[in-house]
């Protein structure tokens, strides 16, 4: 049976992990590769690296990081953050990334999704969508959720799928950072509308939140950062608990 995926997300700046992490076994708490290896060994199903650096060196440092991760890590990983061209993606995939996620660039230039999908295949194109509830409507936000648009979440997700996205990574800006659980009602509606997998993001704070997002939110995968980085939830424990609730997971 296809299992539900648990995906730790690592924020990267200039080739280093941004947020502090609470792993005593780490020799270098800022090294994304070392952290990635620990997560892979703990049973993470995939990893996401989100590059938030904005330097001119970004392209090169990210490519170097991807190469180092691919050398050490034997599970799939996605790279995102400011990816805006076919050339960017070509380089990252050649360095060993399995998938890329596009966000703002795809909203500004939706044809990018078609180009990436036809050149590299839908399986490596994740369209990340940040949205927030505004006057009763889920509206897409850009630049890490800072800039509002008038684009509606559901129509954009459908368009992204039709243009060739292989997965949708939906982050609710209203839930992100709250640790009060994922936006399950909205996730369920997305998951039922789309025929590609949906990754839930934003709001993880407890084991029950993961259970809920897989059952009520009908999510195919769940992404989280700080609950894993600060060891509030251990991945082996989380997966055992999910299994007890009858959710298919890889143990």
């Amino acid at each position: 049976m296809l299992t539900k995926r648990i995906i730790p997300c690592l924020d990267i700046k200039d080739g280093r992990t941004v947020k502090g992490v609470n792993f005593l076994e780490l020799r270098d708490a800022g090294d994304p590769v070392e952290l990635a290896e620990i997560y892979a060994n703990e049973g993470a199903d995939e990893l996401v690296f989100l590059d938030i650096s904005a330097t001119e060196e970004k392209r090169r440092t990210l490519a170097e990081l991807v190469l180092r991760v691919a050398e050490k890590v034997n599970i799939p990983f996605t790279v995102g953050g400011g990816i805006s061209s076919v050339e960017d993606v070509d380089l990252l995939l050649k360095c060993g990334a399995d998938k890329v996620s596009v966000n703002s660039a795809a909203v500004r230039n939706p044809d990018l999704i078609n180009e990436l999908s036809s050149k590299f295949g839908a399986q490596c194109v994740v369209v990340a969508i940040d949205a927030r509830l505004v006057d009763g409507k889920w509206l897409v936000h850009l630049v890490g959720g800072k800039k509002a648009t008038s684009i509606e979440l559901f129509s954009w997700a459908k368009e992204a799928q039709d243009r060739g996205a292989g997965e949708i990574l939906f982050t609710s800006m209203d839930h992100d950072g709250t640790k009060n659980g994922f936006a399950n009602e909205t996730l369920a509606a997305l998951s039922e509308m789309l025929h590609i997998p949906v990754i839930a993001s934003g709001g993880a704070g407890a084991v029950s939140h993961f259970t809920d997002t897989f059952i009520e939110g009908k999510a195919d995968a769940a992404l989280a950062a700080s609950v894993f980085h600060y060891k509030e939830i251990g991945i082996p424990f989380l997966k055992i608990e999910l299994k007890k609730q009858g959710i298919p997971v890889r143990l």
């Binding site: 049976m1 296809l2 995926r5 292989g166 590609i196 890889r250």
Partner: peptide, 13 residues
């Protein structure tokens, strides 16, 4: 067919 999500992405037995 579209009775399942396509592509299949993830870990299966």
């Amino acid at each position: 067919d579209n009775s399942v999500k396509v592509p299949q992405i993830g870990w299966n037995q």
